[in-house]
Nucleic acid binder design. Structure first.
Length: 248
DNA sequence: GGCCAGGCGCGGA
DNA sequence: TCCGCGCATGGC
């Protein structure tokens, strides 16, 4: 039984360890770009999550990965001197279990785009029924040249089985995901981390490379290949955004 | 006003 | 298999 949180009733979850749950940090570490799928309110001694309409507390439990103790992950990553400082500002980060389709669609749109712009696009998408959006719809939402990729990928998604994909190892899974149009190595890694919870997968881009160098990581390879490399990546991403002062 | 954005698809070598 | 290029469009 988790010491972090407790299911109170069918719609409510209480998170008692406030040091490892912070929606602002979860929202701004680069894994998700929209409002939470539940009410999040803070009490003096706990955080209260209340599920919306079609969701329930079991769903929230899985979505927020409340079984996992992130203090242990933080301790493990803190062995790297270069990460010591980077972990501090985003201590409340958790890696979500995002719905597969939503994750694929979101990260296709993120490619060669900026966060502010594509967040606005993502806010307009109906993720419960993405099949209903046409190429013209996606164009109106500002998807640009990615509109046909999205239509094609969404169609292909309906032939894919999340459970079967879940059983593949990292290399095989990446290979399958790249078959989706608009999905290359970088977007595939994001999907693996944020929808398949492959915490060892570390989406690498120039920012992360630069940040590791800036943090003085002589052992960047050891970090990138660590079993929690993906989580480390999220602390680094948040840390950089935090320093840039670009967080709302 | 020009460069950039959490890259990717495509054609040619 | 590996380059180099073009790409919609708003933010800055």
């Amino acid at each position: 039984m988790s010491k972090i949180a407790k299911i109170i009733d069918g719609k409510t979850v209480h998170v008692f360890d406030k040091s490892q749950f912070n929606w602002h940090e979860i929202r701004n570490c680069g894994q998700i770009f929209r409002d939470p799928p539940c009410e999040v309110t803070e009490d003096s001694d706990k955080i209260v999550l209340k599920a919306k309409k079609d969701k329930d507390s079991d769903w929230l439990w899985h979505y927020f990965d409340l079984e996992t103790d992130y203090s242990e992950i933080k301790n493990e990553l803190a062995q790297f001197d270069a990460l010591g400082e980077a972990i501090k500002p985003g201590g409340g980060i958790r890696i979500l279990n995002q719905p597969f389709k939503e994750c694929v669609i979101s990260f296709i749109i993120s490619a060669n785009n900026n966060i502010k712009r594509f967040s606005k696009t993502i806010a307009q998408i109906d993720f419960t029924n993405p099949e209903k959006h046409t190429e013209i719809d996606f164009n109106k939402m500002g998807c640009g040249y990615r509109a046909p990729y999205l239509v094609s990928a969404i169609k292909m998604l309906s032939t894919m089985n999340f459970k079967i994909l879940s059983e593949l190892d990292n290399n095989m899974l990446r290979k399958e995901l790249i078959k989706l149009s608009g999905v290359g190595p970088k977007v595939a890694d994001c999907i693996m981390l944020f929808a398949f919870h492959r915490l060892d997968v570390c989406p690498i881009d120039v920012h992360i490379h630069r940040a590791l160098k800036q943090l003085g990581a002589q052992n960047a390879d050891a970090i990138i290949n660590h079993k929690y490399a993906g989580v480390a990546q999220q602390y680094i991403f948040y840390y950089v955004q935090h320093l840039k002062g670009q967080l709302k």
